[in-house]
Structure formats: C-alpha cells, structure tokens
Amino acid sequence: MAEDLKARVSYLKGLAEGLALDEESKEGKLLRQIVDVLDEMAYEIEQLKTEYEELLEYAEAIDEDLAEIEDDVYGDYDEDEEEDDDDETFTVECPNCREMVEISDDLLHTDSAIKITCPRCSEIVMIDDEDWEDEDLDELLDAEDGAEEKEND
C-alpha cells in the first residue's frame, strides 16, 4: 500500500509539473505545497508500516518466549485440572480414627443416596438417604468451622 501511495504521489508530481503552472502564482504555490505534503505523508506512512512490521515480529517473538517460560514454570496446563481445583469441599472427622475425610459439595447435591466411609478405617462417616437438606449442609459446615477454630486456639 505504501509503495502504491508513493507511486500515486509521484504521478501527481508529474501531472503538476506537466501543467506548467507558474510557481510564482497563488495556484502554482498551492499545488506545489499540496504535492510536497503528500510526498512527505507517503514517506511517513512507509516508515510507520516498516516500524509496525518490525514491532509485530518482535511481539510475536516475545509471545513465543513467554509461552516457553510458562511451559517451564507451569508445565503442561490442563483446564480440567483448574476446574477440579474450583470444586468446593469440606472435611469431616472420622469418629473412629479421627482421620479428616474430604467431601465434595457436589456429591451432596446428587439425587441418589450416598454413603461416605473413612479411607483409613472404613468407618461410615456420613450417610445421605436422599432426605438431605441444604440446611443440614449449612449446619455441618458451621460445626466444621467451629471445630477448626477450637483446634487453632
């Protein structure tokens, strides 16, 4: 485009010279100034285009380098892993061995009955017989928070 613009300005210069206008007349001075300004603009646009292309190449190189650094630091990133981290969980203490059992909040909102056992001693930690209510979950979470506060004291 810039080359095309420069060619068009050169064509206009040739046309202006071909008119054989008196450069001392008002019209001649005006036409000469307009053509000179167009020539300068075409040059500046060409410079901007060149600098833009260099900057674009530089930004792409930085992007590639950053991607390599991210791979080195974070390894292979898997969006499914991030979604798993966002799952809300709570813990319940096993009444038999005092092992802390982590339970996913999503598990409690299923339509089927659930039975959660301790992975250490296989003691039943929680049973949901489909009559589970959100208020029961809130009470369980509040009780858990109270137990954690006592441990921290």
Score class of each variant (00 low, 15 high):
residue 94 C to I: 09
residue 140 L to K: 11
residue 91 T to S: 15
residue 81 E to A: 15
residue 50 T to S: 11
residue 91 T to I: 11
residue 77 Y to D: 04
residue 142 D to H: 04
residue 40 E to R: 10
residue 72 D to W: 05
residue 67 A to P: 00
residue 72 D to Y: 07
residue 140 L to T: 13
residue 33 Q to E: 15
residue 85 D to L: 14
residue 30 L to G: 06
residue 33 Q to L: 12
residue 98 R to W: 03
residue 12 L to D: 06
residue 153 D to R: 12
residue 89 T to K: 06
residue 45 I to S: 07
residue 105 D to R: 10
residue 83 E to T: 02
residue 58 Y to G: 01
residue 57 E to D: 11
residue 91 T to L: 08
residue 27 E to T: 13
residue 117 T to V: 12
residue 120 R to C: 05
residue 138 D to L: 14
residue 52 Y to K: 13
residue 14 G to S: 14
residue 23 E to W: 01
residue 22 D to G: 05
residue 47 Q to W: 04
residue 23 E to V: 05
residue 26 K to Q: 12
residue 23 E to N: 03
residue 53 E to I: 02
residue 3 E to G: 13
residue 36 D to V: 03
residue 148 E to D: 08
residue 106 D to A: 13
residue 109 H to L: 14
residue 103 I to Y: 10
residue 117 T to D: 06
residue 24 E to M: 04
residue 63 D to R: 04
residue 16 A to I: 07
residue 9 V to P: 01
residue 3 E to K: 11
residue 12 L to R: 06
residue 15 L to W: 04
residue 49 K to T: 13
residue 100 M to F: 09
residue 118 C to Q: 06
residue 69 I to T: 07
residue 123 E to A: 12
residue 56 L to V: 05
residue 90 F to W: 07
residue 100 M to Q: 13
residue 46 E to V: 01
residue 138 D to A: 15
residue 53 E to Y: 03
residue 114 I to Y: 03
residue 18 G to L: 03
residue 11 Y to I: 04
residue 150 K to Y: 10
residue 115 K to C: 08
residue 41 M to L: 10
residue 144 E to M: 13
residue 141 L to I: 15
residue 111 D to I: 02
residue 30 L to F: 09
residue 24 E to Y: 00
residue 153 D to C: 05
residue 98 R to S: 15
residue 78 D to V: 07
